[in-house]
Design a protein around this nucleic acid. Structure first.
Lengths: 168, 168
DNA sequence: ATAAACTTTCAAAATATTTTGAAAGTTTAA
DNA sequence: TTAAACTTTCAAAATATTTTGAAAGTTTAT
């Protein structure tokens, strides 16, 4: 397989994986492109390379910056903005974990905490089932939350080292 | 908060979380409803309870069975099919992990393995960057894969016990 | 101040996903 | 058989999401 084809494959695979996990396909593709490119790219180059419109490129890049996955820079003497991605895989994973925790897990934890407090008659199967499910899910969600917190603080080698102790 | 309102809130929250993670909102809501309901439910009751059509209820229930999250049963002397969800949170998490690994992670791993094999001149920054990114992502994906495998084999207490050793 | 270079916005269009519901299919009881 | 009870299918409709592109906005050099 030649490099351009391989790049294309990666961009497609990353886009597909993203869309399966609730991340806009184009956003994942722009990210993939920047991961594969040694130099910083302009909006123009990204539009060209992925055949997307200016508006789409602009919004997607802003989103990626909001996710902390992409940054922009200026080159001396040039007006254009150049974009580049952090290529450290561990940083990427941490950054995604951090954002999703904040955006998605935390709101759910808040609701679960409220629902855990709902009072009722334990002899009522309706209530008992509700209460058990909500309480159990809350516990698991808190476990996940703590694990993410640990991951966010951790160094890569320490984190995977701890994970791999599980295999022993 | 009263029970019916609390149930409603949970169903909405579960639906929202699902849709943010690439799982059809209705599917997550049907699952939530079954998690909260002590008795088995008929298609009719689910349609009624969530105000969805027969076709939607039918397809969603089939999907949920495909995910291994819901089963159907028959009551003696009755024609109707009754549906119920496994309410064990650990089983749910494992089942979801198992399916997503199979459906999404494995195909990506296969592509990454191929892309890792692409040959090129290491002095070419284009190639060097491609190769490093793909190799690094492949490593991380394999770590995730192994961790999931461990989780799938594990008992709940053992798994979380191992995770909590990380906090020490 | 002006204009060129560049970025942002957002309503409308395109696309993708989900849902509906009626018809077709299946199973069971009599 | 037959028909009632129930389930499945799927084309069309509804809805949601994404993308476009031209206009408006901003910045910089002169």
């Amino acid at each position: 397989m030649e490099l351009p084809e391989a790049k294309q494959k990666f961009i497609e695979a990353w886009g597909k994986l993203g869309s399966e996990w609730g991340i806009n396909r184009t956003m994942a593709q722009v990210h993939a492109l920047l991961l594969l490119t040694p130099t910083e790219l302009t909006t123009e180059e990204i539009m060209e390379s992925l055949s997307i419109s200016r508006g789409n490129a602009n919004m997607t890049l802003r989103d990626l910056m909001g996710w902390g996955l992409v940054e922009k820079m200026h080159k001396p003497g040039e007006r254009k903005e150049y974009f580049f991605a952090d290529k450290n895989t561990w940083n990427i994973a941490r950054q995604v974990a951090k954002e999703r925790r904040k955006r998605e897990l935390e709101p759910v934890l808040k609701i679960l905490d409220e629902l855990t407090k709902v009072k009722g008659n334990s002899n009522d199967p309706e209530f008992a089932t509700f209460n058990k499910s909500v309480t159990d899910i809350n516990k698991m969600a808190k476990n996940v939350d703590k694990t993410l917190e640990t991951m966010l603080k951790a160094e890569e080698s320490w984190f995977w080292g701890s994970i791999f102790k599980m295999f022993k």
